[in-house]
Nucleic acid binder design. Structure first.
Lengths: 222, 222
DNA sequence: AAGACCTTTACGGCATTCCGTACAGAACTA
DNA sequence: TAGTTCTGTACGGAATGCCGTAAAGGTCTT
């Protein structure tokens, strides 16, 4: 079994249970951090000491508080970690259950498993760890596997996200056009923006801009 | 110390840690449920057996799954419980940190304490239980106490929420006017609705309707 | 190089929002 | 009761969103 495991989780309640679950798998060295920055430091220190971590289990969202952290989310943490220790195994353990979000995590971050916090997540977490250790294929629930194969979900690019974010900030199409021109984002013509917004409205079955933002906010896209 | 405590929490990880925390307070009878409906049943059964619960610790939001539950949130659960056992003590243990939401919980549900899941929530939960048992005043963090006293936050009524919800469903002012007339909600004239939306935009410093919905969605109002 | 195709942009007409003014009725005041 | 204030509603004009058409420019094929 893995020897050295790091848990990045802000909620004290959850990290207690995770540690307990790891102990049952007879993992000897378990460390916890409540902040992404601390997790990254620990990983760098471990490499320096020639005792690197085998596995990182991280939450996605971390509450912000008085501390000013560089890394504020599990995504940022894993991205940074992979750059310094590419061979480390990673599991995301989060409440997030939007399939396209999870899909992008597999594609962009190359995580080894995604375990969704829920009513029986301890067991799922344990089997995920076991399978990764045995180099078996990651178990993905059927429903999720289907959406992961669905290419159409991947059409929403960062361009669309920027567009939606600007809209949700209360900017008009005119203003977004100017903003995009300043930032060098193309396309940035009025009509092109309108057309793109229209595609998003069709995609998300939205009646108007207000509806569109309401929907994408619910999906956690913005 | 309390004798019999019920924990309503869907996430297995968290309920493990909560039970552990309760055991340290030498509470002897601790029961857990993962669904609101089950919690309500247990409480009714306990009353029937003449061994009622002293304290209910409940989460706010519960994941929906295959089961079709009558009670789907901690609010609904506590509301139902208070009707059958008005003297039961209640603590909400949730990740929600929007002050006006918490305020409405104290005002509408009459909860005894609100503990926010976070980096040191176990300890907060334990002291909250202790204080409730000793009939001391509930400890509220300074920041929260301020907003609880702030009357202005309470100006947003259910009328405004309905309005915002209809907007976020993609309806036009015209359509909302018809909807309100059908439901007997007043005011329902076009201009009145516009005027009210305008007030909300001023209040939330929103540039336009899209912005307004984005803001109120973030605040968890809609 | 010519044609088909795609993307970006421009323009125009209609719908909706945005915002100011105005007026009628209810509630409140003296 | 008469005047004042508040609230709900109506109307109108400017700005923005909404949607279709079309032109300009790029890419690809043949």
């Amino acid at each position: 079994m893995f020897n050295k495991v790091l848990v990045a989780e802000d909620l004290d309640t959850i990290s207690i249970a995770v540690v307990q679950a790891l102990e049952k798998l007879s993992i000897t060295h378990i460390h916890c951090t409540k902040y992404c920055d601390d997790a990254f430091l620990k990983i760098k220190k471990a490499i320096h000491d020639n005792e690197p971590y085998d596995l990182l289990i991280s939450d996605l969202s971390f509450k912000s508080d008085h501390r000013e952290d560089k890394l504020t989310s599990g995504e940022e943490l894993i991205e940074a970690v992979k750059k310094t220790q590419p061979d480390i195994k990673t599991i995301i353990f989060s409440i997030e259950d939007k399939s396209f979000r999870i899909k992008s995590l597999f594609n962009n971050l190359g995580i080894n498993a995604y375990v969704c916090k829920g009513r029986d997540s301890i067991e799922e977490l344990q089997t995920a760890i076991q399978r990764i250790y045995n180099n078996e294929e990651v178990k993905i629930s059927n429903e999720l596997a289907l959406t992961l194969r669905d290419k159409s979900l991947f059409e929403i690019e960062s361009y669309d996200i920027s567009l939606l974010k600007s809209l949700s900030k209360g900017l008009t199409v005119e203003e977004i056009s100017i903003e995009f021109k300043d930032s060098g984002i193309i396309p940035n013509g009025n009509s092109s923006l309108e057309k793109r917004i229209n595609k998003l409205k069709v995609y998300f079955k939205a009646n108007n801009n207000v509806h569109l933002i309401a929907i994408t906010k619910d999906l956690g896209l913005v």
